[in-house]
């Protein structure tokens, strides 16, 4: 099997606080991997290090055998990494369709200024068709022309996923997709994600608080606690592991 992502020995501190301590993580092509851990464990920070939003103090990120070094975020994105955000990040004052259209345009990489000035910068019918397909997959077709401000949180999450999908990622990093959603919305999202993943075959790295979602969606899981990996293995075993339950469920009790 083909290794897609190798994050090796990632360490990151924020003014003395060690948010990540020598974390090593691997994702294989087409695999569905979970990453769990209590609040503040460093999951989002790890995402940011993998995607280049943050520069790790040490350690390296290797995608498809290429060391990403200090490549900026947008270059990494174009190499096949898509993501969603824990605190939803959408482009304000824009329609749903426009979110996907701009992603599609960037994927094709033709945005020369002179084309804009000659009036050739608007979405082409081909782009519109491709985006419509993705909208259809996510069941967002009816909302295509809606301004982003009118959507519910769950719909916004789907738009984020769609925007990432349009870029044709080989690895999709999802940061707590269920946060802020109710049970039914979460289940619907999980079903949609599973279906699309099966169809497209990309790999997923899923950060999640919702244990059920992780159990249902992932095959393998890493457990992070206070910036250190404390366990990893098949998801089922992880859920049963005593250490994991202590670190994780202890937090849940505090949280609830």
């Amino acid at each position: 099997m083909n290794v897609l992502l190798d994050a090796v020995g990632i360490t990151k501190s924020f003014s003395g606080i060690r948010a990540l301590d020598d974390v090593t993580l691997r994702v294989v092509e087409g695999e569905r991997v979970g990453l769990i851990g209590p609040n503040g464990a460093g999951k989002t920070t790890l995402f940011n290090c993998i995607l280049g939003t943050l520069r790790p103090d040490s350690g390296s990120v290797i995608l498809n055998g290429v060391d990403l070094g200090s490549l900026p975020v947008h270059r990494r994105a174009r190499m096949g990494m898509g993501r969603t955000f824990q605190r939803i990040e959408l482009f304000s004052d824009t329609s749903v369709a426009e979110h996907l259209l701009i992603a599609e345009r960037v994927r094709q990489g033709n945005g020369a200024l002179w084309k804009d000035l000659l009036g050739r910068g608007r979405p082409t019918s081909d782009e519109i068709r491709r985006c419509a397909e993705v909208l259809d997959l996510l069941g967002l077709t009816d909302l295509a022309e809606e301004p982003i401000e009118t959507l519910s949180l769950g719909q916004g999450r789907l738009v984020e996923v769609g925007r990432a999908l349009v870029t044709g990622p080989r690895l999709l990093l999802l940061d707590e997709p269920s946060s802020g959603l109710d049970r039914a919305e979460t289940d619907a999202l999980a079903a949609t994600l599973a279906e699309i993943q099966r169809e497209k075959g990309f790999a997923v790295l899923l950060v999640e608080h919702d244990v059920e979602l992780v159990a249902a969606f992932t095959d393998r899981t890493y457990v992070l606690d206070f910036g250190r990996l404390i366990a990893n293995g098949p998801t089922k075993e992880m859920m049963a592991d005593a250490d994991v339950r202590r670190a994780y469920l202890g937090d849940l009790e505090v949280g609830r």
């Binding site: 939003t53 990040e89 259209l101 994927r107 804009d116 910068g121």
Partner: peptide, 25 residues
């Protein structure tokens, strides 16, 4: 033309959320 074209829409995206705009390339 600039606003409706690629550059304008990219700038719009960046203004909405720089992190998200970068994440799509």
């Amino acid at each position: 033309q600039l606003r409706e074209g690629t550059t304008g829409r990219m700038l719009h995206a960046l203004r909405g959320s720089e992190m998200a705009a970068e994440s799509i390339g």
